[in-house]
């Protein structure tokens, strides 16, 4: 056997790129958990009338000021860039791998539908992400404003179009995670045992339902409050 083949850099081989795609995807899943935990503070005024958004503002203040947050924040931005960049690279390779398609399009009826539209769901989530970053992150951290973060959120979520857009984006995120979560484990070569596979699939399913649901419920509640 030819023993001159050296270990390529992770990004030089197809499987390596898939592995990095999986690692960054699962890393971004942990970011979703952290982000949602913070967002849930937006609902505190529901239970504590004296709060008035104070808990959420303190959290937002901590996130923007604490040097401890900078490292995960930078890692998160790198994670996004690598995940999206690799997605573009892999997708273009995949397109080139079949220059001529089939005349008759069929579905085997067994494969997950969402797995075929990761590019579509991912792209829409990316558009949401950019608008979302602009409305909150850029407005506060880069442009600067007198408003508190809670006020910015409250104003944004009193706009029905923004709320609908937000909820739709969460549905697409759910579809993206529905395939992405377990797919990440497969790319890392961790789905080798039927018992573990079932656990990974189940966890992935619940993750893809609960996390986007948690995100989506906040603007819906805040919108109802704003019209009440």
């Amino acid at each position: 056997m030819d023993t001159t083949k050296q270990v390529p850099g992770l990004l030089a081989a197809s499987i390596g790129r898939k592995i990095v795609m999986g690692i960054t995807g699962l890393f971004l899943c942990t970011f979703l958990i952290a982000h949602l935990s913070g967002n849930l503070l937006l609902l505190k005024p529901l239970f504590d009338p004296n709060d008035g958004g104070k808990a959420f503002n303190e959290y937002a203040e901590f996130m923007s000021k604490s040097p401890l947050v900078r490292i995960p924040e930078i890692l998160m931005f790198i994670g996004f860039i690598v995940h999206i960049g690799l997605a573009a690279k892999l997708t273009s390779q995949n397109r080139n791998a079949r220059p001529q398609g089939y005349v008759f399009q069929a579905n085997d009826g067994k494969t997950s539908i969402f797995s075929k539209y990761m590019g579509v769901t991912g792209s829409i989530v990316l558009i949401f992400l950019l608008i979302h970053l602009y409305s909150f992150f850029i407005k506060h951290r880069i442009i600067g404003t007198e408003e508190t973060m809670y006020d910015t959120v409250k104003i944004a979520f009193s706009n029905p179009i923004y709320v609908i857009f937000y909820v739709v984006a969460q549905i697409l995120l759910a579809l993206h995670l529905n395939h992405g979560f377990q797919s990440g484990f497969q790319s890392l070569g961790l789905k080798k045992n039927p018992k573990w596979n079932a656990l990974i699939n189940k966890t992935g399913l619940w993750f893809s339902i609960l996390i986007p649901l948690g995100f989506a419920i906040i603007p819906i509640i805040m919108y109802i409050q704003s019209i009440a």
Binding site: L90, N94, S115, H179, S183
Partner: peptide, 12 residues
């Protein structure tokens, strides 16, 4: 060849 996206169509 293209890259696997874990759709599982091949297995089917």
């Amino acid at each position: 060849f293209g890259n696997c996206t874990n759709t599982g169509a091949c297995e089917v």
